[in-house]
Nucleic acid binder design. Structure first.
Lengths: 248, 248
DNA sequence: CGGGGGGTTGATCTCCTTCAATCAACGTGG
DNA sequence: CCACGTTGATTGAAGGAGATCAACCCCCCG
């Protein structure tokens, strides 16, 4: 009985941990009620594929919890990650059924899903959703462009520092913490996934992480817990002059 | 008198060469009339800056003609292009005044501009514009992600071939021509601009273009006219299995 | 004629890849 | 409880794709 109540609570939009950042962020209570009726949750295990490139996707979704990756794969096996889905990010493109990339969970993932057609109808009839989705897409475009600078012009060391800075900032933003003390966060990516993110080999990733550790820029607990004692110093190492302003 | 008439014709939305692809593509005649009242044209010479990163931008715009680039610059001078604005592309982000990148004309450019506030009001009150802008932003995001694969995983030769394929396809799309015959198009970018696009040096760009020329994949007339005798072969050289379906 | 911007080509160097060995953590079955 | 295989990570040695440094060309324009 009590577990049932907990499950029910967790499934109410009002209690949703990504409520203030997701595609539904601008919705009023009556609009939320409509979403509430058509939504459903799906869970994925680490390593599990959510969709493969080319598959029909009959739903769109918000990431409630966990981390998933979008990636391109070339015929000869070269792979480039092109998106990192963190909690509150949106998955799927309204107006297109075929998935353009592989989407894979890298940690336990919970999605809040909507079937495509009802969602598209809602999108057409509910301006707040449309506006929020435009805003999120513009933010993603900004992120993609920052990423392009990383891929095109940064050294291996700068690439690693940049990745850590991005995830640290996102994590701080979601948990509404500041960036001035020591930061501790989970980085649920294998060396190979980081290499795919950064356009490197996993060996280079490993070497550079060791180097950053040696130089005291980061510390590592267990397998994937990172501590950043001085965020400003990490930013400098990433080649970003950006003073890492407050929470975005 | 006749030049006046010509100028006036050119400024009517009904005659606009980018009418069917720009932000205004979904507008009805009455909505167009509103846009028509608040729009104004601006011209830029090759090499001229349209805005610098950090500048206040009091307008948004559609590219009517010409080519402009968006680029990131790091303090030490490294530069990465993050956007290539071709005719019908949209410049500026509703809801944000400060430009995040340098925008520079690389050929004579004509913009169709709208002051920000009236445009944002229109965006809120005119769903077709909102929807079209979302669609265009999603397309740009797709393009950015294809670009990320190019930057992260392709060889110098593949990068050059990819750039040529992208521009050739866009050009064919705008002019509604097929991709099967020999393609001839202008590539109004210096070697340095191409290097900034591809995350290479201008020397490497020059060498690879020479190599593609030697191998018969392209021919070059004058300074910046490219001929692609066999588009499929170019695609293969770009590392894209994509059969380069018809016009997007 | 001189100068400058854009382009090409050559020689050398270097950062990252490639190939390979080793290690630690973990689970599994004998 | 221990051999064994597996998966992820680290480290080393060698090689190569592209960067860097530099010379030179072409063409346009003052």
């Amino acid at each position: 009985m009590s577990t049932f109540t907990l499950a029910e609570d967790r499934m109410k939009c009002g209690n949703c941990p990504i409520r203030h950042r997701a595609v539904c962020a601008r919705c009023e209570t009556d609009e939320l009620a409509v979403l509430e009726r058509i939504k459903y949750y799906r869970d994925f295990a680490p390593g599990q594929a959510i969709v493969w490139a080319g598959d029909e996707m009959d739903f769109v979704a918000s990431v409630v919890d966990g981390v998933a990756t979008l990636s391109h794969t070339m015929e000869d096996g070269r792979r480039q990650m092109v998106g990192l889905l963190l909690p509150s990010d949106f998955l799927g493109r309204p107006g297109r059924a075929a998935a353009p990339y592989d989407v894979v969970a890298t940690s336990p993932v919970t999605l809040c899903c909507f079937r495509r057609e009802p969602f598209e109808d809602l999108l057409a009839s509910t301006p707040p959703i449309n506006r929020r989705l435009l805003e999120m897409t513009l933010d993603e475009l900004d992120a993609a462009r920052e990423w392009m600078l990383i891929l095109g012009r940064k050294t291996a060391r700068e690439k690693i520092a940049s990745l850590l800075a991005i995830v640290a900032r996102r994590d701080a933003s979601l948990r509404l913490t500041k960036l001035d003390g020591p930061l501790v966060f989970a980085l649920p990516l294998t060396r190979e996934a980081m290499a795919d993110y950064l356009g490197l080999t996993l060996e280079t990733v490993s070497r550079q992480i060791s180097a950053l550790k040696r130089d005291g820029l980061i510390r590592i607990q267990g397998s994937r817990q990172i501590t950043v004692p001085d965020f400003q110093r990490l930013m400098a190492e990433a080649g970003d002059d950006n003073d890492g302003g407050l929470i975005s």
